[in-house]
């Protein structure tokens, strides 16, 4: 149930992470682990995809890996 989760996958939470520093998709998935949000893997991927499409973050390659970031 949502009340038992200690982490919520929301646009605001993703936005705050991406303003702080560039992150890969894997970095983001680590922040919103299914065991902490209570979401399934599929839900996590779908919700995160929708959020990233809305936020439309900047992208840059660091160490050959694509990172997302936002500026305030």
């Amino acid at each position: 149930t949502p009340s038992s989760s200690d982490v919520q996958l929301t646009e605001e939470a993703v936005r705050r992470y991406l303003i702080r520093k560039p992150m890969t998709t894997k970095d983001l998935l680590k922040k919103f682990q299914t065991k902490r949000t209570g979401l399934s893997s599929e839900q996590t991927v779908n919700v995160l995809a929708q959020i990233l499409k809305r936020l439309n973050p900047e992208r840059k390659n660091i160490n050959d890996k694509m990172h997302f970031y936002l500026t305030e």
């Binding site: 894997k26 893997s41 996590t44 991927v45 995160l48 995809a49 694509m66």
Partner: peptide, 20 residues
């Protein structure tokens, strides 16, 4: 697990690639 995270990252990137 790590491999599940890899799979999720791959699925997420695949979904975003259509958009980017």
């Amino acid at each position: 697990s790590n491999s599940e995270e890899d799979e999720m990252a791959a699925a997420l990137e695949a979904e975003l690639n259509d958009f980017m």
